[in-house]
């Protein structure tokens, strides 16, 4: 048996509270498996978001013992260590109920950047796509899970901070524009609540489940914004 302490909240509740559950977990089970077992066997009213079960859709972000994680990508055995596991919703985002957050605010930050879903795929050395396909494509790495925004200490203090995911997306466009206007994206990154607001806490990269490394992307785009600004200042193009 593994003990879980789960955050509960409903519209109309005076205060959110925690509820404890004892769950029998199979070897290899994830925190999401445990939450679904609670919903199935103990409390059908538990609200939790999930879809893909393999770290691709980005819906199941929660905080496990205070740390941002994808519930489907976190093995119970790796976080239990004989103690109670605390599961809470992400912060810096509005809670719908229990563990489900509304991704509206997160997506609103991404929206002006407008990252296309597809990018050029990395290929093995010497790989040649078949006839009829110019170059292989793949989905962007960012799965829009919002873990980075939840973990970001600047976002805690400044609700207007555009946040790590949007800046990492901007950097992807600078890298591979795919028809987007790089100038507009750089202008967005140089606004007051944008790239320069970051304090290099690196928490975004620490929690990113999808190897986006927002912190590295952020420092790259800051450099690019600086170079761009200098160029404009000295009239070079």
């Amino acid at each position: 048996m593994t003990s879980f302490r789960v955050y509960r909240s409903r519209r109309g509740d005076l205060e959110p509270h925690f509820e404890d559950f004892e769950v029998e977990v199979q070897a290899g089970a994830t925190v999401l498996d445990a939450l679904l077992a609670i919903r199935r066997e103990m409390d059908p009213s538990l609200v939790v978001r999930h879809s893909c079960m393999h770290a691709s859709c980005g819906t199941c972000g929660v905080r496990v013992d205070g740390r941002e994680r994808l519930a489907c990508d976190t093995r119970v055995a790796d976080v239990a260590r004989g103690k109670t596991i605390r599961v809470e919703p992400l912060v810096n985002q509005r809670v719908v109920a229990d563990l489900a957050t509304d991704m509206l605010d997160f997506q609103a930050r991404l929206e002006p950047v407008g990252l296309p879903l597809l990018r050029t795929a990395e290929s093995e050395a010497g790989a040649e796509p078949p006839d009829g396909i110019k170059s292989y494509v793949r989905f962007e790495s960012c799965i829009e899970c919002g873990l980075c925004l939840s973990a970001c200490p600047v976002a805690h203090l400044d609700a207007d901070f555009i946040g790590p995911a949007a800046l990492a997306a901007a950097e992807r466009i600078v890298e591979e524009p795919r028809g987007r206007d790089v100038g507009t994206v750089l202008a967005l990154a140089s606004e007051p609540d944008s790239a320069w607001r970051c304090r290099d806490a690196m928490q975004c990269t620490a929690v990113c489940p999808s190897a986006v490394e927002p912190a590295t992307a952020l420092s790259r785009i800051r450099r690019r914004v600086a170079v761009d600004g200098a160029r404009r200042l000295f009239g070079r193009r």
Binding site: V48, R49, H50, S51, C52, M53, H54, C57, T59, A100
Partner: peptide
Amino acid sequence: RGEITSGSTGR
């Protein structure tokens, strides 16, 4: 009953 696409569709 759950999130949109939380059945077989998402997985």
